[in-house]
Design a binder for these strands. Structure first.
Lengths: 193, 193
DNA sequence: CTTGTTAGGATACGACTGTATCCATTCGGG
DNA sequence: CCCGAATGGATACAGTCGTATCCTAACAAG
């Protein structure tokens, strides 16, 4: 049922989401939609929560697939590579995510729900990068939180350009890899103290 | 009149934009809104065009203010610094721009109008960076179009994080400057052929 | 003075919205 | 057996939406 909501949101936009449309898409009656989601607000929030859960699942799948050795760089490549839309389904999810993001800008209730995952992601990556720095994997003059913020912003921006067909998935991945190369580059390129 | 539309779009979202709301916001009757914009579609497109014009004006203003010497790096700092929301008005415009961007994902007519400025910007900056590379201002192993795409995506992503109050304008500017430092860094840091 | 164009007020129409109400099932525990 | 709770179908309600229509003015050109 929440899937029907996200299907509509990602193909026709969040403004096309109505209780009746969801009922039709899910093949149930209007009353059933009302029954399981008391409000339209509750319905929308459930869609956002589901989106977050999917993203979480995808990150873990990719991390498991790349298993064996999870270098700091491997973690970043997995997470950032998961943010970028890489197949039809994740592309649809990214569209829905974008729709929600925009709605959250003028709807505080959605903003509260929608910011938890991005913030958790930033904290998680920052902790990883700090550890990597202490282990000597990245240059000591880098600020972990700033680097993470920049990388996440880059991934989000690239996602948008992929969605609007300005850029292919491959081109976006290349740009991400390029930045990871610079960050996790050889110690020889670090500035001497 | 288009200003009233953008005022509503940036404060309450594009889905709150209705002909009657615009009429009320502009202090005119519904008929007048219908008179000057035959369609709602035409109305929406005029808002998008106006947003593009404002952005254009801002870039030129900033470029003129930083006048005297317009180094390649100065051009990039001006353009990217203009994309980031730096005062209340540009913040509102960025919100409206985001709303339009999202709507364009599921509305081909808006996409056509909305992509002209970003594409023009990318072409312009790529030409500048190519020239700078030939002049020896950046390392020869950089791909200008890729670099520009990355920087624009970064600026867009940072804009979003500023709008959702994850990041301050200053923090975002610092990240941009950091990347520009790397790009236009001293020749000593370039890889030897 | 007449006539056509531009401008705008008032109102109506059908479609669609979220929500509420009324009613019929199904089903498990007492 | 029964009875309350869970589940869901059908329909109604009050708004709001974009759009269309009808009617005045104002004004410039003939």
């Amino acid at each position: 049922m929440t899937e029907a909501l996200l299907r509509i949101a990602s193909t026709r936009g969040l403004q096309a989401v109505s209780m009746r449309e969801i009922a039709a898409e899910a093949g149930v009656s209007l009353r059933v939609v009302q029954y399981y989601f008391t409000n339209k607000q509750a319905l929308l929030e459930s869609g956002l929560t589901e989106l977050g859960a999917r993203m979480d699942r995808r990150v873990k799948q990719r991390a498991a697939a790349t298993a064996g050795e999870l270098t700091p760089r491997g973690v970043f490549a997995a997470v950032l590579g998961t943010i970028l839309p890489f197949d039809e389904q994740s592309k649809l999810d990214s569209m829905a995510w974008t729709a929600y993001y925009t709605a959250a800008l003028t709807d505080p209730a959605l903003a509260a729900v929608g910011l938890t995952l991005p913030n958790a992601l930033e904290d998680f990556l920052t902790a990883r990068l700090t550890a990597a720095q202490q282990a000597g994997d990245i240059a000591p003059d880098r600020d972990p939180r700033t680097e993470v913020a920049g990388l996440l912003a880059l991934a989000n921006g690239l996602t948008h350009s992929v969605l609007s067909r300005q850029r292919s998935h491959e081109a976006a991945t290349k740009i991400i890899d390029y930045h990871l190369d610079r960050l996790f580059g050889p110690a020889a390129a670090w500035p001497s103290k």
